[in-house]
Structures are given as structure tokens and as C-alpha cells.
């Protein structure tokens, strides 16, 4: 009885959430149209900014709701695929949570023990969690395959299909919102996140097909969908762990930024040349180290102003939170 009540509560929450997403999207669209004098397309209106700020919160709430509904429906409806999909959603949610934790940690002031700050803690947490999830994912695949091989009867009922349908709808709406906001405020990272929720749509679709197939009598299809979702989970885990390890190793950051900065720095007056520009990621922060050649006889004051200029150039190009260290070297050969 309580469980049923819980399910009803969940479903109504999801419907309200979906309605909110849908309404919000159409409303914003209308506002944008009005602001742009009837033509759609790119804008940087206030409403889009607002929308973009909401994306993170919406994603978290959406994912939590979906984990609950998929977990509940999956267990109640006896669908392996849906439960695996719930775990998949949990992996997504964990990624978001780790990101938030990373932000929190990097906000922490440096102290004597960790003079370079706590930026790398995020990666360690992320490695631990994803290795754990890797284990879960392997279990899902192993168990799913064993179910198929042994021919055990998985007999999902239609409520499980409803769980998958809800999941598809919400993921699609979240994708639409993120991609819209991401395009309008020109944020590639947000667009990347949007495509992630699109891939969730596909995995839920596979689960739905699996459930319907099992209902039609092809009982292997539900565990097969679970195995597919398990592979997706493993893929996420591998990617995340790889990303974390590479960043722990201070791998060079994306070349594009470096090239841009190089070009911009070359236009600077008062410098004799660029020795090197390197960057690494510290959680959400980009740390740049810029080594410049200057004439050996400039005053410290002039040197400081060069450093300040370099700072400004980097800040102009890079739209992320970043720290910049500028070191000056005397350019002997050039003179």
C-alpha cells in the first residue's frame, strides 16, 4: 500500500516535472521570439541565460526522479533492463555530483599542507566511484548473459514499459532544454552534456524494446537490453576513469586554447618571444603556465604590467575559471 502510494507520488512528480520542462521551453522560445523581433535562432537574451543556469538543477532533479521511477518500476515490473537503466542513470547522476563536489573542493583555500590546493581530490573520488561502478556494470553484463544462456524466465510486466517510456520522455525533454540553452549561450560543454542525455534516450529505447519483446514472448530480449545498458555503463566508467587518470598525470590541455593564446600573445608589445605555454586541468579550474622572453633590461614594474597583460589575454580567450602563472625570462640570444 505504502509502496503503491510512493509510486503514485513518483509518477505525479515526474509528470509535473515533464510539464514544467515542456512549458518552460515553449515559454522561453516565445520570449526569445518576442525579443528578437520574430526571428528565432541564436540569441543571448536574458531568458536564455536564466535557462542555462537552470540546466544543472533540472538535470539533477530529472536524474533523481528517473532513478527512483526506473528502480521502482524495474523491481516491481521485474525487468532486468529497466533496473540496469536505473543504474545507468545513477552513473550519470554521480558524474554530476562529482562535478559539484569538485567545485566545492576547489573553492577551498590552499593551506600549508596542500599549498597547491585540493583540485585533484575530485579525480581521486571519481576514480574510486567509477571503478566501483565498473564492478557493478560487469555484474550486470555477467548476470544478463547468464540469464540468457541459462534460459531463466524474465517476465517483465507492462508497468516496466511505462517506466521506460517516462525515462525516454524526460531524457528527451532534458536534451532539448540543454541543447537549446547550450547553443544559445555558446557553451560546448553544455552541448556535450545534452548529447549525453540523448544517449540516455537511446539506452531507454533499447530497454523499452527489450520489455515489449519479452512481453511478446522473446524472453531473452529483456536481459539482452540489460546487457546493452551494462556495456554503456562500462563505457562511461572507462571514459571517466581515463579522464581522471590523465588529468592526475597533468596531461597537456586541449591544443585549441593554447594555439589561440599563442597567437594573442604574439601580438603583445614589449615581449621578445614566447618560450612556452602549458596548461593543465585542476578540476573545474584551468591552470596556465606562460613563459615569456623579455628584454633583460626592463624594470620590474614593466615586467609586472606584461604579466598583467598576459593575464588579461588569457582571461579573454578562456571562458572557464582559470589561474595563470606568468614567468619572464631574459631574452639574451635575440638581442
Amino acid at each position: 500500500m505504502i509502496l503503491k502510494f510512493f509510486a503514485v507520488l513518483l509518477i505525479s512528480a515526474i509528470i509535473i516535472f515533464a510539464a514544467f520542462l515542456y512549458r518552460g521551453a515553449s515559454q522561453l522560445e516565445a520570449e526569445n521570439r518576442a525579443a528578437n523581433g520574430g526571428k528565432g535562432g541564436s540569441c543571448s537574451g536574458v531568458s536564455c541565460q536564466k535557462c542555462a543556469q537552470r540546466v544543472g538543477v533540472v538535470n539533477i532533479i530529472g536524474n533523481i526522479l528517473m532513478i527512483c521511477i526506473k528502480g521502482y518500476m524495474g523491481v516491481a515490473g521485474r525487468s532486468k533492463g529497466l533496473i540496469a537503466d536505473a543504474i545507468h542513470s545513477s552513473a550519470d547522476l554521480l558524474a554530476t555530483i562529482i562535478m559539484i563536489i569538485g567545485l566545492r573542493i576547489s573553492d577551498k583555500k590552499t593551506d600549508e599542507l596542500y599549498p597547491y590546493g585540493y583540485g585533484k581530490a575530485e579525480y581521486i573520488v571519481s576514480i574510486c566511484i567509477y571503478l566501483f561502478l565498473f564492478g557493478i556494470g560487469s555484474f550486470i553484463i555477467y548476470n544478463g548473459i547468464m540469464t540468457i544462456v541459462e534460459g531463466r524466465l524474465v517476465n517483465p510486466c507492462l508497468s516496466a514499459a511505462w517506466g521506460a517510456i517516462f525515462s525516454i520522455a524526460i531524457n528527451e525533454l532534458m536534451f532539448r532544454q540543454s541543447i537549446c540553452a547550450g547553443r544559445h549561450i555558446n557553451s560546448p560543454s553544455m552541448q556535450a552534456k545534452a548529447w549525453e542525455s540523448r544517449s540516455d534516450v537511446y539506452s531507454s529505447l533499447a530497454v523499452l524494446i527489450g520489455i515489449i519483446g519479452a512481453k511478446m514472448g522473446f524472453h531473452f530480449m529483456d536481459p539482452l537490453a540489460a546487457v546493452i545498458v551494462g556495456v554503456i555503463i562500462l563505457k562511461i566508467c572507462v571514459e571517466q576513469v581515463k579522464y581522471a587518470v590523465l588529468n592526475l598525470m597533468d596531461r597537456a590541455y586541449d591544443e585549441d586554447y593554447i594555439d589561440d593564446i599563442n597567437k594573442a600573445l604574439q601580438g603583445m608589445p614589449n615581449i621578445a618571444g614566447i618560450k612556452k605555454v602549458i596548461a593543465r586541468e585542476l578540476g573545474p579550474i584551468l591552470e596556465f603556465e606562460i613563459c615569456l622572453y623579455v628584454l633583460p633590461d626592463i624594470s620590474i614594474k614593466a615586467g609586472e604590467s606584461i604579466k598583467q597583460d598576459a593575464h588579461n589575454i588569457v582571461n579573454e580567450i578562456v571562458d572557464r575559471k582559470s589561474t595563470v602563472r606568468v614567468r619572464l625570462f631574459a631574452a639574451q640570444q635575440i638581442s
Binding site: 521485474r78 532486468k80 559539484i100 566545492r104 555484474f139 540469464t147
Partner: peptide, 28 residues
Amino acid sequence: LTILAPISVLVFVVLLAVMYGWVDTMDT
């Protein structure tokens, strides 16, 4: 909160994984 959030999600994941293993045996 920062500690509890991932831990609770992980616990949930473990719970789901256990259920995942049970689903087919439950049926029979």
C-alpha cells in the same frame, strides 16, 4: 551533504544491483 550525496546514490546502486540479480529468481 557533499559526502552523503554520492554515498546514498552508491547505496542505491548496490540495492538495485542486488534486485537485478533477484529479478529472474523472484519470478519462479
